[in-house]
Amino acid sequence: MKVLAAMSGGVDSAVAAARAAQAGHDVTGIHLALSRNPASYRSGARGCCTIEDSNDARRAADIIGIPFYVWDLSERFHEDVVEDFMDEYAAGRTPNPCLRCNEKIKFAAVLDRALALGFGAVATGHYAQLRTGEDGLIEMHRAIDHGKDQSYVLGVLDQHQLAHSLFPLGDTHKSAVRAEAAERGLLVADKPDSHDICFVADGDNAGWLREKLGDRAPNHGGAIVDDATGEELGRHTGTYGFTIGQRKGLRIGTPAPDGKPRFVLDIEPVSGTVTVGARERLAVDRLSGIKPRWCGTVPRRLEGTVQLRAHGGEHRAVVTTADDAVDIELLDPAFGIAPGQAAVIYDGTRVVGSATVSATVSATVAATQATT
């Protein structure tokens, strides 16, 4: 089969491409140029947007012995991922750009072009496993290495996309991947993993948003108020600098009466009000989801688990669906969940699908209402 291997310049995608070639596929490597000016997104060997990364990917392709090309998807990436990231934060939501990139770029724009060019699949270095279920559908499962599992950020893939995807590393631990890279003579064997958001060069999301949003933000400042008393505790320069559950960087001079730290409980982008309070007020036990993406058959009711952050734990949950709405009852309350985050739904190790969190119900508020 003709396989297009997406090569970021890191060790994982290089080994994935090598394995695909060793399995007998006719492999072509590509590197995605996601910025016309790579230094504006990322400097140093940290991600997927630098000239260094492109050169690392090209050298790996040469060692593997496969053709290599660079595809310029900078305009599509900026529109579908970067602009979406800014718009969501400006609206007081907390997006995950990695999911959006997988949905819109790697397994949409890239896959569409690959199929049009006669390729049968796109291979990436993501840590996830694909299996054929008893019903004949392609199932996506967590990787063997749970510490590196990336099924959460792949929870937006549908059956068509899964049927044309290859994840050669899903059955391997990361330490073994690095060892294999060294054995194959790949110079990226010891290259550090990428972290943070690839287009935020220094990892300072708030500073990056402040610079990029400018006058596009609905407000340039507002009050930070106490949830219990309504007292104004301070001022801020933009709601985009906050996210639900945030504790650090609030710059509140007045301590809480009990001496405990305060957390961001709510963000109102129109008025500019940021509400803070005790950690227990962050507990939620019910989520509403919109824009669902299903990996296979749409469940009407499922008792499974939900993951709410890329590196977060699982919460036991009862999931019900109706049309394009998803209701999630958390049997294990979660803390600090913000609208805009992705809720990825699992049945055991199998990824069922995902939805974007649109609203949350506080466990403490629900408990108070139930007793009054």
Rank of each mutant, 00 (worst) to 15 (best):
R58K: 14
A128S: 04
H25S: 14
E139A: 14
A355N: 06
D158R: 05
W71L: 10
N102P: 12
S194L: 11
L302S: 05
I138T: 15
G304K: 11
A90W: 01
L4C: 13
M1V: 13
A310S: 09
N219H: 07
T364I: 11
R113K: 15
M86S: 06
G10V: 04
F85K: 04
F335L: 08
A317F: 06
V177F: 00
A355W: 09
L115R: 11
V357S: 01
W294V: 06
A20N: 02
L137K: 15
R131L: 08
D347I: 11
G259D: 11
G272N: 02
D324N: 12
S175Y: 00
I252Y: 05
V357P: 01
L187F: 13
A179H: 01
S35N: 04
L130N: 11
D158N: 10
N37L: 05
L130S: 07
R350E: 12
A121K: 08
C198Y: 10
G133R: 13
R216A: 09
H195E: 13
G253F: 07
L331M: 15
V351K: 01
A343T: 09
C295I: 01
V352N: 02
I197R: 03
D158E: 01
Q369P: 00
G214I: 15
H31L: 08
D227K: 12
K291W: 02
H164Y: 10
V274S: 02
P192K: 10
S40Q: 10
I64Y: 04
V70P: 08
R113V: 13
E79L: 10
G336A: 05
D258L: 12
V306T: 07
P292T: 15
V351M: 09
L166I: 15
R210A: 14
D323Y: 08
L34H: 03
T320R: 14
F263K: 03
D227Y: 15
G340H: 05
F242R: 00
A181C: 11
A114P: 00
Q341V: 06
H220Q: 06
D258H: 13
T237P: 04
V270G: 09
S74C: 02
A21V: 07
H195L: 14
C49T: 09
I328R: 12
H160K: 14
E314Q: 15
P299E: 02
D323H: 14
I267L: 06
T172V: 09
D285F: 05
L282N: 02
C198D: 09
P299R: 03
K291H: 10
V81H: 02
Q159G: 07
T305Y: 12
R309Y: 10
T356V: 12
A181I: 03
T94M: 12
I66T: 05
G277T: 04
L99P: 02
D149P: 05
T372E: 13
I345Q: 03
P257N: 10
L162K: 00
A6Y: 00
G10Q: 06
V15A: 01
D145Y: 08
Q341Y: 04
G348R: 08
D285P: 03
T275S: 11
M1P: 15
